[in-house]
């Protein structure tokens, strides 16, 4: 029979059985949740604690930031990434220097610091620039390709002459009409929104072209063509080009516009109307009176 008296540890033969505590500990360690915690949670916690205690000091934080910055700069400022010059293509002269002025650059600069989208927007913000493409090309050159706005007409708005392109966008201004005699002049309220129509009218003038001073938008719905000698052709809102063609036909048949006519009113297609100048109407009336008088004499 086993002795009931508690023996000293040394005398007890080796017992392979785990102690109750050891057994419980092993079972705890085999529990899935605890195992995951020990495998993932504890290392993560340890790393977090160590790094937190290190970065609790501000000089450590600053040192890390400085180090990162230095590494970043060292990489970005390698010669392969440096931009040395600016190449503007597509335009020349004043516009090119305008574009160069709006790009805030001091060379050399790292290509990581370039805000290409911002530069493109800055270039396109210029009136005379229709679109711009900006890229860092080979050999450290910043290539800016500018497509300028092509003015198709002069637009007079409150005594200011503006250059206007086919989309109706103002692309610059001129001091006098004589600077751009090659462009037609348009005027009137809302004229800039109907550039295509104005240009069609202008191109349709044909033989009258030398005499056209400009086209004027009237009441934001129809056009007048102003000729020299203060002549005016009033065109209808509907089908102005057809009406203009009729006038050109009339003019070539009867030299209508060479006569002393002030206004050719084509607004009513059924009833074209002429207004003569005051002298002409007086002279005509006088001629009629002479004829009447002559008739009375007979």
């Amino acid at each position: 029979m086993r002795s009931l008296i508690r023996r000293r540890k040394k005398d007890v033969p080796y017992d392979p059985a785990p102690s109750r505590l050891g057994y419980r500990y092993q079972r705890l360690m085999l529990t899935p949740g605890i195992r995951t915690t020990m495998r993932i949670g504890v290392p993560v916690l340890l790393i977090a604690a160590i790094s937190a205690s290190y970065f609790a000091h501000s000089e450590n934080r600053a040192a890390l930031t400085a180090r990162i910055e230095a590494a970043k700069r060292g990489f970005q400022e390698r010669p392969q990434f440096m931009v040395q010059e600016l190449q503007i293509t597509g335009v020349a002269g004043a516009l090119a220097s305008d574009v160069a002025d709006v790009l805030p650059l001091t060379f050399p600069v790292s290509s990581f610091e370039l805000d290409l989208e911002g530069m493109r927007k800055a270039a396109e913000a210029l009136e005379a620039v229709k679109s711009a493409r900006v890229r860092v090309g080979q050999d450290g050159a910043l290539e800016v390709h500018v497509s300028p706005r092509v003015p198709v007409a002069l637009w007079r708005d409150a005594n200011v002459l503006r250059l206007i392109d086919a989309d109706g966008v103002v692309s610059g201004r001129v001091q006098t009409r004589s600077e751009r005699l090659d462009l037609p002049l348009i005027a009137g309220d809302g004229a800039e929104q109907h550039i295509a129509q104005a240009l069609a009218l202008f191109n349709g003038t044909g033989p009258l072209r030398d005499r056209v001073r400009g086209v004027v938008r009237m009441g934001e719905r129809r056009w007048d063509i102003v000729l020299d000698r203060d002549q005016r052709i009033l065109l209808p809102a509907e089908g102005p080009v057809a009406a203009l063609n009729r006038i050109i036909a009339l003019n070539s048949a009867q030299d209508m516009l060479k006569r002393d006519v002030v206004i050719v009113d084509m607004r009513n297609a059924q009833r074209p109307t002429l207004r003569m100048s005051e002298e002409a109407s007086l002279a005509m009336r006088r001629g009629v009176e002479i004829q009447i008088n002559n008739g009375a004499d007979e």
Binding site: D15, A17, P18, R20, Y23, Q26, L30
Partner: peptide, 13 residues
């Protein structure tokens, strides 16, 4: 109980 514990622990291990 000890013997059962021994067996269970070894098998669990």
């Amino acid at each position: 109980e000890r013997a059962i514990r021994t067996a269970i622990q070894a098998a669990q291990k």
